[in-house]
Nucleic acid binder design. Structure first.
Lengths: 138, 138
DNA sequence: ATGAGTGCAAATAGTTTGCAAGCTG
DNA sequence: CAGCTTGCAAACTATTTGCACTCAT
């Protein structure tokens, strides 16, 4: 089991959450690559019978609430999740044709928070996804 | 009819598209505020009987292809559209409780494009939405 | 043993599509 | 009057919810 999965499990335990087969399996999938997964995609990566698709939805949602994964939104509105991979908040550059994903550390979180605060907004979060056609897909 | 709507209509005509009742009505709604609308929300603003919800979906999609509106995605994945309002590309700060929206001109489009190109990606686009709780909602 | 977690089925939300009829240019 | 547009119905995709059962702690 990867170190990243171990860390995540500790975090879950620390919050009084239970470590189950499906949760471990889903974490393993997320840890396998930096590419963000939708619930359906993560489900597709699981060995047949690992768990139900609904469980994937519920676990990913739970993981997000627990702060061990971050979520984003695809161009088409699909929700995706990825482990912090030990690097905390970041964004992705995704090929809209093949799904290949590169990590982007560029982020204007602080600036956005400053602007938002100037409007009196609190609990500021943001979602940013970058799309393009990768060299392989032309 | 607002100037903004006039401009949009000219753009549609220039592309050989037809100016119909529903299209004008939808443009009026979009022009009424800087707040981005989902198809359902735009539909709700129309006078009863202006047109069918499906038509709103199709028109907004068409408007985006024609370049007269820009689209974004809500935290929950809902697709939203807004007129350029004569200021071109921009982003929004939306209260996740009441929907109040402020315009944000902060954008790292150029930087993102540079990073994406360094990976060999072309046709780079990005989606960014900022959320918070506005002063009125606490 | 107790309640968090899961599976299955069914409900929902948002959006898209097929096709015949209507209206714009 | 040609064919872009629309309306209506139905299909679809992604996600959520209800409920009984199971298993981690």
């Amino acid at each position: 089991m990867s170190e990243l999965v171990q860390q995540s499990i500790e975090l879950l335990k620390a919050q009084g959450l239970r470590i189950t087969g499906p949760r471990k399996a889903i974490l393993e999938v997320l840890a396998s690559t930096e590419r963000p997964f939708s619930s359906e995609e993560a489900f597709a990566q699981l060995k047949d019978g690992s768990c139900d698709l609904v469980t994937v939805y519920r676990c990913l949602d739970q993981f997000e609430k627990s702060g061990i994964v971050e979520s984003g939104v695809r161009e088409n509105g699909t929700k995706v999740y990825c482990l912090g991979h030990g690097h905390g908040h970041h964004h992705h550059l995704t090929c809209r044709l093949c799904g290949r994903t590169e990590r982007i550390d560029l982020c204007m979180g602080k600036e956005l928070e400053a602007v938002a605060k100037s409007f009196g907004f609190t609990k500021v979060t943001h979602v940013m996804e970058v799309f393009g056609n990768c060299p392989v897909c032309v």
